[in-house]
Design a protein around this nucleic acid. Structure first.
Lengths: 220, 220
DNA sequence: CAACATACTTATCGTATGATCAGCAAGGAA
DNA sequence: TTCCTTGCTGATCATACGATAAGTATGTTG
């Protein structure tokens, strides 16, 4: 799982590692630290606001080494994005169990999505930061993630509506609403905390958010 | 109204202006241009990502003049925020008509909020950019806007629930959900357009968004 | 051992950033 | 007419930015 907060990461020099033992210098470790720092920085400050110098500093490395491993700021952004999306997918897609009715799979998707954003609030922040303007980076996200995800959930909504379980509203609009409600408490967590005196990441709040979305989406 | 796109602004050298006619040089005009450019830049790139040099350039002025009028980047941000919040309030608060039931006022609040975000998507982008971290700027927004707004709408929700018109869910959570659904289509408008091939700012989409939120909030 | 690739460092590039200061020009008030 | 405030410009500051080049260790492979 992507670690959103701490720079620590599992070493790849473990016994079961397939590659030959690489003595003391392990580039994968510093790369992982850089990717984690990059996630924090890009999601906090946006692409142009983030400084790869600062990212290198946070990862306890130097700027030239960062650029040696990742080439450029743009490339670092993409590698970071691939890293975090791969992590998302690894915990998501498995639920293709065709034996479940669509509405039930939608219910699971909602819960997974909320927990996903709770675990990795940076992800949705990244998409929010890019989502207002058509840039190369938005198109990149769209091709690598959004498009497939959208297709999948639209299917679920339509099938769930046929089952009579899902409220009859425009699927695209509903998907946006689900995403919005699932993400916003974590994206603006500080504001949430100021307003409600509650930690949106706590189990109670996460479950409450899921329950609210379910109330909206499914017909009673 | 705050103009989110064009740098043009109404001149204050009109005949009805109370201040003495000020010859050719009118600082208010260039100040207005700067504020509009600042809104665009800060909401696009975040506080640290935005460049006051570029803002000055967009406003057809120089950096020293910008700093002469606004002092510093931080101060410009605050003046810009005051400017946009004042504009929001001027089109909002009037609906304090006590003769209407709370649920009806909530219905109006929802429609106003959606249209507000459609008119000034930058505003919510600004709050999203600040909302994840407790900074001086977030606290500033909180004190100057969020707190009062929250108090007002929480009242409406609770009263609406007493009237039996509003779904019985936690008021704070409901407010966040309303805000999220009202804002997100405009905040990530480019993504919205890519996914749905529809313009979220069009009248049809705005009204559709309002209708969806109403379906969720009010009991049938 | 020699040859070579990989990981990394130091020094430096040109440019952009936020900010300051001295000076100037154009009113309005005395 | 003199003075003073206000609006504005040009030059310049130290610092930060993304990026590159040259060189140095530390392996692994032949």
């Amino acid at each position: 799982m992507v670690d959103d907060a701490t720079p620590e990461s599992a070493s790849s020099t473990d016994a079961q590692s397939p590659r030959k033992r690489q003595a003391r210098r392990d580039p994968d470790e510093v790369k992982a630290r850089i990717l984690n720092s990059a996630l924090t920085a890009f999601s906090n400050y946006g692409f142009e606001g983030a400084s790869i110098r600062q990212i290198a500093r946070d990862a306890h490395t130097s700027l030239p080494l960062l650029l040696y491993h990742f080439g450029s700021k743009e490339d670092l952004w993409k590698r970071m994005m691939e890293h975090v999306l791969q992590d998302v997918r690894s915990r998501f897609i498995p639920d293709e169990r065709e034996d479940l009715p669509a509405s039930e799979r939608l219910r699971r998707y909602i819960a997974d999505t909320v927990r996903q954003f709770a675990n990795t609030p940076s992800l949705h922040r990244l998409m929010t930061l890019e989502g207002h303007n058509i840039t190369d980076r938005l198109l990149w996200i769209f091709e690598h993630n959004t498009k497939d995800s959208m297709r999948y959930i639209t299917r679920l909504i339509i099938d769930g509506q046929k089952e009579g379980k899902v409220r009859m509203v425009d699927p695209a609009r509903l998907r946006f609403a689900i995403n919005a409600m699932a993400a916003v408490p974590f994206v603006v967590s500080a504001e949430y905390q100021l307003l409600t005196n509650k930690n949106p990441f706590s189990t109670d709040e996460v479950e409450g958010t899921i329950a609210l979305i379910n109330q909206f989406v499914f017909v009673s």
